[in-house]
Design a protein around this nucleic acid. Structure first.
Length: 276
DNA sequence: CATGACACCTGCTCGC
DNA sequence: TGCGAGCAGGTGTCAT
């Protein structure tokens, strides 16, 4: 479900509700979301732990705990982070994977229908460094240069859209925003990445940044079940030019937008006229 | 090392 | 109405 703007929105909304609070208790409904840790270790680390900071890295939420460990949530396709006033019951509890009442009232809930999301526990700086090193640069980092952004594209024979969604090249861009950015930059999504010159990649980076900023301002894109940290819908779906609009007229030239699943088996929507 | 295929899991929609 | 096929904002592993 969530790409960079959605996770950024969730983290911003939950930060004031969680930072400074401690998890009074923790329950976990399924073990299959755990990566690199066990139920016993994770629950032991979270019980009584106080949240010192809540940040976003790539499409993940990062909880810095007072123990020095970091608790990471990768929401995957259907994960949601919420802080209701009380622990969920009945239908609300159905897909709750992790429930942690807070010391000062309220409750932290990680809800995930498909459970493709993952929970990680990084116990020290070395573990954090290893996790961080596997991820590419943040696209909204003002220090990111076009040269750095362009490098993995210049080396790859893959479709430019696939590289754009590769979290080792640049983080945070998933299927929705890859489709949108490539349309805005006038780039054919199936074009081999290495065939794009530096100027074109500069345009692509600029469009990625513009669109991600705009999507954050709209609190993300709600197509199905994405909700912000306060349970609201995002609004960026009203500003999409191609994603989910196959068969409809291009908002730029009026042609019918095309759909293909040939790139990385993900839906790619594009305009034959505008993306050369 | 780069690349493609497939796995993880559940729910919804669409066509027959 | 029922049922199978296909699809869904992500990411990791495996063979080749």
């Amino acid at each position: 479900m969530p790409e960079l703007p959605e996770v950024e929105t969730i983290v911003r909304e939950l930060r004031p509700r969680l930072v400074g609070r401690a998890f009074a208790s923790v329950t976990l409904s399924h073990d299959d979301v755990l990566v690199g840790t066990t139920r016993r270790v994770l629950l032991g680390a979270l019980r009584g732990a106080r949240v010192q900071a809540l940040e976003r890295r790539a499409k993940h939420a990062v909880f810095r705990l007072d123990s020095g460990a970091r608790f990471i949530i990768q929401p995957g396709m259907s994960g949601a982070l919420l802080v209701p006033d009380a622990a969920p019951e009945g239908e609300d509890a159905r897909y709750a994977v992790l429930v942690a009442p807070l010391d000062a009232g309220g409750c932290f809930v990680y809800r995930d229908v498909r459970r493709l999301g993952n929970l990680l526990l990084l116990r020290d700086e070395a573990a954090w460094a290893a996790y961080d090193a596997r991820l590419g640069p943040e696209p909204l980092d003002p220090a990111l240069t076009v040269e750095r952004f362009a490098a993995p594209f210049r080396k790859s024979r893959q479709a430019v859209k696939k590289v754009l969604m590769d979290q080792r090249a640049v983080v945070g861009v998933g299927n929705i925003y890859a489709n949108e950015a490539l349309f805005a930059a006038g780039i054919d999504p199936s074009k081999p990445a290495r065939l794009l010159d530096e100027a074109r990649l500069g345009v692509l980076l600029a469009e990625v940044q513009r669109i991600l900023h705009a999507a954050i301002a709209s609190k993300g894109t709600t197509f199905r079940d994405y909700r912000t940290g306060t349970g609201e819908r995002g609004n960026f779906q009203l500003e999409l030019f191609v994603y989910g609009r196959e068969g409809e007229p291009c908002r730029n030239c009026g042609r019918r937008l095309a759909l293909t699943h040939l790139i990385d088996a993900r839906s790619t929507v594009f305009c034959w006229g505008c993306q050369g």
